[in-house]
Structure formats: C-alpha cells, structure tokens
Amino acid sequence: MSIFKKKENKTIIAVLSGKGGTGKTLVSVNLACVIPGAVYADCDVEEPNGHLFFKPINLKTKEIGILIPSINEEKCTGCTKCVEFCKFNALAYVGRVMVFEEICHYCGGCTIVCPEKAITEVNLNIGKVVIGDSEGTRIISGFLNVGSVSGVPIIKDIQKQIKEEEHTVIVDCPPGSACAVMESVQSSDYCILVAEPTIFGSHNLDMVYKLVTLFKKPCGVILNKCDGNENPSKEYCIRNNIEIIAEIPYDSELSDINGNGEIAARVSQKYKDIFMNIAEKIPKVK
C-alpha cells in the first residue's frame, strides 16, 4: 500500500480508557506502528508516554503559551473592577493588583473591564508540542509543564495539527472523562475503548462509553489483560451490544517488552499480527 494515501482515507481514531494503567498507550502505539502512514498523537499531555516507546528523531518543537494579565501600575487607579469581575479569583487588590498566574483561566475579562486600559496580556509558557519521526511513523506529543494547570490549550494545538494530517491518526487520549478528553473525542471519527477484566474496569468502561455515545461516535472495545477467567468488561459489552474488536491476553512477554520501552509490534511477529488484525477491524469511517 502506498504511504501517500488519499485524504478521503483519513480516519481519526481516539483511544480512550476510564482510568490510567489499562493499556491505552500500548494499544495506541502498536496500532500506529502497523497502519501504514499512520500518525501517532499523544494528547495525554500530563503524562505523555508514547514518545518513550517511539523515541522519535528530527524533532520540531513548538512552544505553547497562554495570555495572562499584566498590570500597568501607573495607569491603575485601584477601582478593583478587574478583581470583582474575575470568576476564578485569580486577582486580588492590596494596594496594587496581584495576579495569580496559575489560577488564571486566560479569559481576557480583566483587560476588557478595566476602565483605565491598565491591563495588557503577556505570554506565559505552559508547555510544548513536539513533532518527530519514528521509522516512518509521525509522532506528535504534547507536554504540559509541571505546575501548569490545564493542558487544554496544548491539546487544542495538537487537534489543529491532526486536522492538517493527510493520513490516519491514532490519538492517545488522557485518562478519565474530563474536559481534556472531550476535546479529543469530539474531533474523532472512531473511538477505541480499552478496558481491564475487573468490575472496576467495567465501571470505568461504562463512563467512557457514555461519553462516546454522548458525542454519537462509533466505537469498539479492546479487552486487555484477559486472563481466561470471568471478564465483567466483556459482559458489559455483550449486554450493551458493543463491538469487541479484540481480546489481548495477559502475557508476561508483552509486559516485559513494554516495560523495556519497546514496541511489541516492532519486535515480535506475534504481536505484529495481533495488531494488524485489530487494525483491519476498524471501520473506514470516512
């Protein structure tokens, strides 16, 4: 297959799980490896791990910043309109206006309400987006600086990048179902939900499944760490008529490969085949 696939063949696949540790990154990384020309995008900006496996080269880095207020104390008359307006309590007035950067939601409200035009906005770096290459797979990773509050601006930048890509994109989403995940789900064509074989796993699966159905996205489930015993997540899928794309057995070989930071589909023919099979089951949505 040519790597210069047509744009119509582009599918954005979001990989999700209710909690961390289910194997979401394992699935995303390996799928990106076996789909020719695929792009891997790591939106788990608080704990990006995909790059540890891909070890991408030819890196291009883009710094991501937000706009936070800066007070011109000569113009400020101490009217405190900005303090009263700020819904996030990021400003205080004690003889001068104090700005608490890490609480600021960069809404720009204070600059608008200031009657003296004493507030301007300055850039505050919150992280970066790094694009690189790993054996022909494009790797996009977002990194949120430690201490910065919200990774949403970084995820939005990655989403922009994803839109420009010409090939299938595998999006490794943050865990949970908070705002950061919704950004990723909203812009996807298909969602893969990764679940563990416990009742906690099925309960967390229920949460992400509800999120995916809220946005009316087609989806399928990959059951990970299957040990041959009962699997409440599988029962959940059957009960709710959700397609099970694959069942990945618990395998110490796989956890060793993974633990060493290697990609199973690259070092093991067995796993290459397993993930090729999974890739074929994903519908071409567009």
Binding site: F100, I103, V149, S150, V152, C179
Partner: peptide, 8 residues
C-alpha cells in the same frame, strides 16, 4: 504551596 481549584 498553592493547591488551586483547577479545571480537571
């Protein structure tokens, strides 16, 4: 240290 009420 400030453990602010953040967004997620």
């Amino acid at each position: 240290p400030g453990y602010h009420g953040h967004k997620n």
